[in-house]
Design a protein around this nucleic acid. Structure first.
Lengths: 112, 112
DNA sequence: CTATCGTAGTACATCTGTCGTAGTAAATGT
DNA sequence: ACATTTACTACGACAGATGTACTACGATAG
């Protein structure tokens, strides 16, 4: 079975998370489920990877956290929302992706 | 200026090198120049990255080294050739790339 | 005649993001 | 009642990329 290269994803975990936060604020567990479903089960982010991405991005000012009670269960959770800087970072990464893809595909057969 | 994500390339430096070795045996300096020209100057591999990739891949049995004198200058250089295992590894990475690309593009706007 | 540039590397320490393992704790399912 | 799902946190290990620096030789420029 072929698996997603975690060494590629390494550069885009943050981007994937930001993509989801762009739609609405969310929290760890939900993000991880959304990544799984959106990728058709092809990629499952590790918890540790996810939560360390959160703290890194908060430190970098790309996201902000806030505590909130779940509307259904009433449990408090740590939510994250994307910042203006996060949006810029995300857009930049999208541009970067195009360039990176172009380059990689010159070295991978069956493409372009 | 947008730059190639070294965290994506990280997963494909080996593949890029193997792609070039698939055509003919080569050595460090030449490989680095070929990567630069083939990528239209968009990606320049660092020396240390390149040579550590060589030793890693030799250890893994993907390439074999041999000493040879340059036909022009007569200087001895360390050449590398790809092995059967290296070819299989390369082909696998090409498949993996397609899958990875598919997933990433679900999270990057302006694609698919 | 000397300095810099291109060629062809090697050595070593550091950084970053991911991963493995483990543990907590409340709520929900069976 | 016990297992699973939800929702995290802590900590250490690892691998690949990077920075810095150094060697050595020949060609070329000033």
């Amino acid at each position: 079975m072929i698996e997603i290269s975690s060494d590629v994803i390494r550069g885009y975990n943050d981007t994937m998370i930001l993509h989801l936060l762009l739609k609405q604020p969310s929290y760890g567990y939900e993000i991880s489920k959304q990544i799984k479903t959106l990728s058709d089960g092809k990629y499952v982010i590790k918890e540790t990877t996810l939560y360390s991405a959160f703290s890194r991005m908060e430190k970098n000012g790309y996201i902000e956290s806030f505590e909130s009670e779940a509307s259904d269960t009433g449990k408090k959770r740590t939510y994250y929302r994307i910042t203006e800087e996060g949006i810029r970072y995300y857009e930049n990464k999208c541009e970067e992706w195009k360039l990176t893809k172009e380059v990689v595909e010159k070295f991978v057969t069956g493409e372009r």
